[in-house]
């Protein structure tokens, strides 16, 4: 049975699971996505125990909302959106006073006043250890939006749906996140991104 199940596409697995309630279908979904979800949780939460708890909660959420999944969308996009939102919630709970999540264009953040255009190429070709340090130095909501765009290859529309924002707000947020990454890079490594 295992071999034939492996060939099923994600949306076919979901359909089978919803029809039969056979947990082996859900187990296969877990095996397909657990590694990615876990590594995302670690990179966001920076703690293995918290990341494991988060994975458990995320798959429970997935199980409870599987019937709402839009078959036209990619399952990976949906799972990653749940993962990022869950991690942001967790971080928020830990640092309620520091983090402000929202795209508020009128946010009095000094970067918003003078957003420098940072070319994608600069970010996409950065050395891995430097990229990791830069991503850890910017606020989690900015990190999430950059990961969604450049790591998961999500479209602006998909990011907007995942974060419940408008497309223009997402575009602005990406621009600002890139500017913050640039600022963090300069602060950490001294030289300018070119």
């Amino acid at each position: 049975m295992g071999g034939s199940l492996d060939k099923l596409k994600d949306h076919e697995l979901i359909e089978k699971f919803l029809q039969t309630q056979d947990t082996s279908y859900f187990n296969l979904l877990y095996r397909r996505y657990a590694a990615k979800v876990y590594s995302k949780c670690i990179s966001m939460l920076k703690d293995e125990a918290r990341a494991q708890d988060a994975v458990q909660d995320i798959f429970a959420k997935l199980f409870l909302n599987l019937h709402k999944f839009n078959k036209k969308a990619r399952l990976s996009t949906w799972i990653y959106a749940i993962t990022y939102n869950h991690c942001i919630d967790q971080i928020r709970r830990h640092h309620k006073d520091i983090i402000q999540f929202g795209d508020n264009v009128e946010d009095p953040d000094p970067i918003a006043e003078d957003v420098q255009e940072v070319h994608d190429k600069v970010l996409l070709e950065m050395e891995l250890d430097r990229l990791e340090a830069v991503l850890d130095a910017i606020p989690p909501d900015d990190k999430v939006i950059l990961l969604m765009k450049y790591q998961d290859g999500m479209q602006i529309k998909e990011i907007a749906e995942a974060l419940d924002k408008t497309e223009s707000a997402v575009k602005m947020k990406i621009k600002r996140a890139k500017a913050k990454a640039h600022k963090a890079y300069v602060k950490l490594f001294g030289d300018f991104l070119r």
Binding site: Y30, A35, K36, S39, Q52, Q56, L128, E132, Q151
Partner: peptide, 29 residues
């Protein structure tokens, strides 16, 4: 791109422990 390579590295570095699968599936049951 570097973002994708970073994700791959993290996936190799942090593998979900087998007991996590048991925990998740027990909760699903």
């Amino acid at each position: 791109n570097s973002f994708k390579r970073l994700a791959e590295e993290k996936e190799k570095e942090y593998v979900p422990p087998p007991e996590l699968e048991q925990r998740v599936m027990a909760q699903i049951y």
